[in-house]
Amino acid sequence: MLQWAFDTMLGFGLLWLAWRALNSSDLFKAIVLFIAFGLLMALAWVRLNAPDVALAEAAIGAGLTGALLLAALARLGAMTDQNVSGASAYPVPSAQPPAGSHFSRGLLILLLSASVAGMAYAIWSLPSYATGLSMDVAAHLDDSGVGNPVTAVLLNFRGYDTMLEMMVLLLAVLGVWSLGGLQQQPEKPVAAVLETLSRFLTPVFILAAAYLLWVGADAPGGAFQAGSVLGAAGVLLLLSGWRPRVRLMQWPLRLALTAGAGAFILLGLLTLLLEKQFLTYPVAQAGRMILLLESLATVSIAVTLAILFLSVSSGHKEKSGKGEKK
């Protein structure tokens, strides 16, 4: 009964926070509420017995997305301050834009209510007991090379999805780079406390990432969680004013960026040649292959997330290495 009450409260809490985040009059407040919403989501994942998702949500969903949003808002603020013509863009005075008559708003709300009712009915009508693919996963877990079923699905049973996902990450960086850099902002002096904090926290984050990567084979954790924690360490370093040297921005950066994708492609070709089957690992080697893939993917994910943050926060420009300023 207590659990029931807790879950109900959590469900309503999520809806309430989402509503507040989406409709608060101040954009900064909206983003902070959104981050709080992400943390509450992580709690929901724990309640739903999904610790792997909870870790990913806390690190990526709330943490890095939140950092990206805040950095973008800061840039937007600085940008529209300089630009007198755009002064109206930020902050938006009222949450609700004047667009749309009462009639069309009413119609929209009617439509949305109908669709939520339809969805709720569809969900309600599903059978209350279903095992999905859990039996199939359990039956083949021993051949997968890892003991954590989620890692087994991500890196082995549905490893092809994960391969394409590494490409999506790479594509996001390419897309951001192809937009070209933003105008450089004068860098603000960094608070001493942040600098000390990041000095202290970075090794902790690196250790945590290594732990998550290693333990992911048999317990909650894995490449994405480890990569995002490592990426968070990078973000923290960037926030404290650290910038990689220009030399590092070239080859080493590109190599780290493509390591995960490249490993998947090479392994794909290798398995196709040797096993005549795309991404089929020999059972005896599966554990080692997955660890190798995950390690390289972790590096790529971390570098990708840090680059994305740098591009949004300081207008990093590809090649020019303008970000180097210390």
């Binding site: 082995n156 490893g159 999805d161 089957q277 089929t280």
Partner: peptide, 11 residues
């Protein structure tokens, strides 16, 4: 069958 598993477990 990617990964040699075959649907519905694999892709």
């Amino acid at each position: 069958a990617v990964g040699g598993w075959g649907a519905p477990l694999g892709i």
